[in-house]
Design a protein around this nucleic acid. Sequence first.
DNA 1: TCATTTTGATACGTTTTGGTGATAGTTTTT
DNA 2: AAAAACTATCACCAAAACGTATCAAAATGA
Lengths: 312, 312
Amino acid sequence: MTITQLYYVLAVAENQNFTKAAEKCFVTQPTLSMQIQKLEDQLDILIFDRSKKPIELTEIGKKIVTQARNIVNESYRIQDIVDQQKGFIGGEFKLGIIPTVMPTLLPMFLKNFIKKHPKVKLKIEELTTHEIIARIKDGHLDAAIAATPLEDESIKERVLYFEPFVSYIPVGHRLHVNKKIDVTDLDIDDMLLLEDGHCFRDGVINLCKVFKNQIDDNFQLESGSIETLIKLSNEGLGMTLLPYLHTLEINDKEKENLHYFNEPTPAREVSLIYHKSELKMQIIEALQDVISGVIRGAIAFQNVKIVSPLPK
Amino acid sequence: MTITQLYYVLAVAENQNFTKAAEKCFVTQPTLSMQIQKLEDQLDILIFDRSKKPIELTEIGKKIVTQARNIVNESYRIQDIVDQQKGFIGGEFKLGIIPTVMPTLLPMFLKNFIKKHPKVKLKIEELTTHEIIARIKDGHLDAAIAATPLEDESIKERVLYFEPFVSYIPVGHRLHVNKKIDVTDLDIDDMLLLEDGHCFRDGVINLCKVFKNQIDDNFQLESGSIETLIKLSNEGLGMTLLPYLHTLEINDKEKENLHYFNEPTPAREVSLIYHKSELKMQIIEALQDVISGVIRGAIAFQNVKIVSPLPK
DNA sequence: TCATTTTGATACGTTTTGGTGATAGTTTTT
DNA sequence: AAAAACTATCACCAAAACGTATCAAAATGA
């Protein structure tokens, strides 16, 4: 049994296809077939059920894949230990970011980070919290930036900042006259929401403390981007909530529609999250340093109250 | 990096000697040297400091060895998963047993176990609790039988039985007239003890609740075996305590010197212990089944009070 | 101090293994 | 029925792993 064989098994399990798996591993398909057969022979079991199309794992195959992932990940840690010892910060690093953080935070720290750590090959992907959690667990992401707390056993969190919610209330809305807004003023029914899947949406819903059995979904305006929410709101279709960093980028005219909350200001907690196995911690810590550095000064709120990003 | 290379590193780290390590791995010394060099080259570090004699691990080498042990152990688990799936109970199994349990318990279950599980190649070693803990942690033992609780994070325990302490009081001793003995009657100063390192000794000391600052060690009779303790006691050199199973094997004359304790009877807890990683659980459970089977009936005490086997 | 032993590294030849390309045999898709 | 997609198998090659013989350095010991 070799680490390579286990790696091949993982590739086939993920792609459900020998040919594609071979490409991902940069070897030919026969190589992969033979190595996996060899492993199966040695263990005297079948890992894959080749009669099913697409290929499936056998019962024991599933258990072996779990353990194989373990071993392969642990083997990466050897290089990690060496890097740590040498103080080397580099190599490929896959970072996920949720959509409502990506456009505002990324420009703030990316150049800084690349300049400070040129040897790190950052691969950044915009993903929902749900996708992020799955990919951190299966090793396809090294870390991610998401709203927390996630309450997930196998994921660790390092808080980066607290980002207050700000109301965006168009002229003519019943709340537009109020200078400051209180959480109790909110009504989920005239609130423009992001599409399902965005944790910011869930945060807003949690904040509104919906007591009704279900949200009235006969006519619920939803959008995929915060930019669109603002435009819809301008059209008089309702108010909406924005993450604080977004409010720094809207034009002066629109800024007049911003209404801050009474303290304690509701806010989301934005964290750097990563697998509990703590692989590539040097890079994770480097990221944390850079982001904390740029965010310091950008957000200066006291007395915030964290809103859960999870659908209840 | 291969699992084999990591295994070689472990062997050298343990033996502090390439030649001996090579023997243990059933390869020649150049093979081992080359593979380790190759790994060191790939990682671009030195794992061993070859200038020291005997050879030493470098700082980073120590970390790598820890991780290598991890990976190698986890790789064994693949075979384990397969065995479990097949219901196969076999292969080499290294069991440690503490000296005060070995002679009484081993004959009771060994034949049974071998008959029931002929494919298991049992390698049994008599070791102190201290040695057992170390060897379970470094993977040289698969499981052990010892007095518990051990309060060790990385070791799991499955209680096999509670074995009462029985007083052995020779004719002429001040307590010989008492039919039953109470814990409060005990005096550490006229008690014959096993040598240092035996957990049964520590159990006895704990039982005696020594309030004095230190045991009077000007003249303290100690012995390496319980047989000897009985003989010394017969010579009038003091009383001693025996584990219950030992009392089943002494001759009728000596049986008259046995005095049981008032309830709650002080007893030691004897458990099957193993690493928390739960490798070879099928065999461990098979062992537990067999031992529990033979012990049932052999010990029928209610109302026992467990004495800690750890030196305080 | 000088011979002997121990021990790790090196050189080189042999065997094993991991890998490729071509192709055959299935199953699925069109 | 033909084409496409996919995995298994075969022959072959290059690289890796391993063994034997040998060397150099350090430790041992007389």
